[in-house]
């Protein structure tokens, strides 16, 4: 199970941290990195498989292009990795556009198109010394999935079709219910369903066993690769947009120019949902090391010498 939307706990931790920072007179801003001749390239990644893969892809592609690259993976939360970015412990990391706005910049309402989401995030980063490079074709966002049989039986295509399902039950991470129950009712008229919180069992297993009828999953989950499950469309984009774009320190762009940005962008444009699902499967299901998966992918696509 891929999880990046760990917002609630992280938010609480962040507020406490902020309070304590004020108390102790210690803050990220109070300890800026000393001005340096050159800013090192340090790729960061959060602590779940998709991020390891993305981190390795960017790192290895840059190394293959002749850059000297540092790498820090497994950073525990959006807030923490942002702190690391601001204090230049890392200078580049892949982030999801929706998360940038809702977590990093604390936006309550999100733009209505992927492009607007991306542009706003980029604008906000540029105000504080970072910028975004190109975004990926794939996005990793919430999606409601049902088994093919269920989809057929009730003729399910979009979220609003769920209204017609009798005794509807939806599985998801515990925080899903508080965040989305109201929304899905208002926007798609889906109400009165039973919510089953996930605890130590995968949503797909619940679907397979018939314990629930629908489940909230993520678009790059490996089980979605085949045709076993149907993803219900979200025409109103209730779940927002979660394309990945590398957040980079603006100094890197100034220092290394297009040789740097084009290396990154070449990787980015290869990342379709199929590609990401396949790599996630290799790491999650087959337990292949992320570094080797990234290596194979870059070589196959000519971004690294064989």
């Amino acid at each position: 199970m891929i999880r990046k939307h760990n917002r609630r706990a992280a938010k609480a931790a962040y507020s406490v941290a902020l309070g304590v920072a004020l108390l102790l007179g210690l803050s990220a801003a109070a300890a800026p990195a000393a001005p340096q001749q050159s800013t090192p390239i340090i790729v960061g990644a959060k602590n779940f498989p998709e991020q390891y893969i993305l981190g390795q892809l960017y790192r290895q592609a840059l190394v293959a292009a002749g850059f000297k690259v540092g790498y820090k993976e497994n950073i525990g939360s959006t807030e923490l990795i942002d702190t690391a970015l601001k204090s230049r412990q890392i200078t580049l990391y892949p982030e999801y556009t929706g998360v940038m706005l809702s977590v990093t910049f604390k936006r309550k309402s999100l733009p209505k198109t992927p492009q607007a989401t991306y542009s706003l995030a980029k604008q906000l980063y540029e105000r504080r010394g970072q910028t975004l490079l190109a975004r990926t074709p794939f996005q990793d966002r919430d999606v409601i999935a049902v088994t093919r049989a269920t989809a057929k039986r009730y003729n399910l295509k979009t979220l609003s079709d769920l209204k017609r399902v009798p005794n509807l039950s939806i599985a998801g991470f515990p925080e899903w219910n508080t965040r989305w129950r109201g929304q899905i009712g208002r926007q798609y008229g889906v109400k009165g369903f039973k919510f089953v919180p996930l605890a130590g069992i995968s949503a797909y297993q619940l679907l397979d066993q018939g314990d629930v009828l629908a489940a909230d999953v993520f678009t790059t989950d490996p089980p979605l690769l085949g045709s076993k499950y149907v993803q219900l469309r979200d025409p109103k984009n209730m779940f927002g947009f979660q394309h990945v774009a590398p957040v980079v320190d603006q100094r890197l762009v100034q220092q290394y120019g297009t040789r740097f940005t084009s290396t990154i962008n070449k990787v980015t444009r290869l990342l379709t949902v199929k590609a990401m699902q396949a790599m996630n499967k290799a790491v999650i299901v087959d337990q292949r090391p992320a570094a080797r998966v990234a290596d194979a992918f870059l070589k196959a696509n000519g971004l690294k010498k064989k």
């Binding site: 492009q115 975004r135 962008n265 444009r269 379709t272 087959d286 992918f297």
Partner: peptide
């Protein structure tokens, strides 16, 4: 960079990553 969206240059090649 025009809005960050890159036109796809055809589907990427997905190699065999090996199986568990």
């Amino acid at each position: 960079m025009s809005g960050g969206l890159l036109l796809a240059q055809g589907e990427p090649i997905i190699p065999d990553f090996g199986e568990g």
